[in-house]
Computed example of a mutant assay.
Amino acid sequence: MAITSNIAATYRGPGRVITRLLSLGQREDRALMYLMSACIIIFIAQLPRLSREAHLTGQELDMLLGGTLMAWVIIAPLLMYIIAFVARGIGMILRGKGSAYGARLALFWALLASSPLILLHGLTAGFIGPGLELQIVGLLWCVIFFWFWIGGSLAQERGA
Rank of each mutant, 00 (worst) to 15 (best):
L50Y: 03
L132R: 08
L65N: 08
G91Y: 00
L139W: 09
I44H: 07
W109M: 04
L50S: 04
Y81C: 10
W72T: 12
S114E: 06
A2L: 13
F145P: 05
A31P: 04
A71D: 12
W72A: 10
F127T: 05
L117I: 04
M92T: 02
S114P: 01
G102P: 07
R30H: 13
L112M: 03
A84I: 05
E60Y: 11
I136K: 08
P48D: 07
L61A: 11
F85G: 04
R52W: 10
T19F: 00
I128F: 10
V143Y: 05
R27A: 09
M63R: 15
E60C: 06
G152H: 00
I82K: 03
F145Q: 09
G13S: 12
M36H: 10
E133I: 14
S23L: 06
L154S: 05
L117V: 02
C142T: 15
A9Q: 13
A76N: 12
L120Y: 01
M36L: 13
M70W: 09
E28W: 15
L65F: 08
A31V: 10
F145D: 07
M92C: 05
S51K: 12
F43Y: 14
G126K: 05
L47G: 07
I18D: 03
G96Y: 00
P130H: 15
G66W: 05
L78S: 09
L132N: 07
T57R: 10
I128P: 07
A113I: 01
P116R: 01
S114H: 04
L22D: 10
G152N: 02
I40R: 12
G89Y: 01
C39Y: 05
R12T: 05
V137I: 08
R158L: 08
A84R: 05
R27D: 14
S51H: 13
T10Y: 03
W109P: 00
I118A: 13
L154V: 12
L65M: 12
S37L: 14
R158D: 11
A110S: 09
F145H: 11
M33S: 14
P116V: 02
V73D: 04
G129C: 00
A76W: 11
L47N: 08
L32R: 13
G98W: 00
S51Y: 12
G138E: 09
L140I: 11
G91Q: 03
I41V: 14
L47V: 15
E133N: 11
G66D: 08
M70N: 13
L65C: 08
P14G: 05
G151T: 00
Q46S: 15
L69I: 12
W141K: 13
V86Q: 01
L56D: 15
I3T: 14
I7Q: 03
F148A: 03
S115Y: 04
A155G: 07
I44E: 07
R52A: 13
I118K: 07
M33Q: 14
I42E: 14
A54L: 06
A84L: 06
L154I: 08
P130C: 10
A8K: 10
L35T: 02
L65Y: 07
V86S: 02
P130M: 15
A84D: 06
G129T: 01
G152K: 00
P116L: 02
A84W: 04
A2N: 15
E133G: 06
T10I: 07
L94S: 10
